[in-house]
Amino acid sequence: MGKNLKYFTNGILEENPTLRLVLGTCPTLAVTTAAKNGIGMGLAATAVLVCSNAAISLLRKVIPDKVRIPAFITIIAGFVSVVQMFVKAFAPSIDKSLGIFLPLIVVNCIILARAEMFASKNSVLPSVLDGLGMGIGFTCTLTLMGMIREFLGNGTVFGLTVTAGHITPMIIFLLPPGGFFVFGILVSLSNALAKKKGKKIVEHIGCENCPSRSFCEKANEGACEEKEAVVNE
């Protein structure tokens, strides 16, 4: 049980997909102009992540290694279509503000990375917990970023007036530069916190977990390990 709990909390704090693994940057920067969009995007991605992790974990022994990426994408695309129709039907305003980024969850690298790195190697329960943890981590980060950007750029949080009308907001926080700025500050804060806790900032991946191992000629020679050893010094 303790190990399962670890799979779950891993994605929320230690390996937070956006802040620590720096995955899914595109939707992170694009949709966080308001806290509501952040939470909507996060929950949609979480739903897809949990379902696709479960399905891929179930099928991990059936999917041939050489065509695993297309197979993963097909599975993910199926769940994204379901989520998209669901959001369109029950939350049309969120569907409108997320726009193209909702269908683009198909190619969201958090989902593909978890399928590749975790679900294709583990049984169903850990995969679901991993998906849930990663999804919640993603949702929390997106919501936090959305709140910061909405507050500074529009004077509201979750659409509720805080300083709007009294202080002129800085519109730049709603624009791409502000997104990069807030993202950079959050990443550096999380790095500082991790450093304080004595965690390594660069995670050791190694050849057995490397996503390109099937194409890499030196996959079993440990060619990258030397490089990493140098970096770690």
């Binding site: 002129t168 800085m170 519109i171 730049i172 926080f173 624009l175 530069p177």
Partner: peptide, 10 residues
Amino acid sequence: IILLVSFPSF
């Protein structure tokens, strides 16, 4: 430029 983008009204 930050000011120009942030506060076009000023």
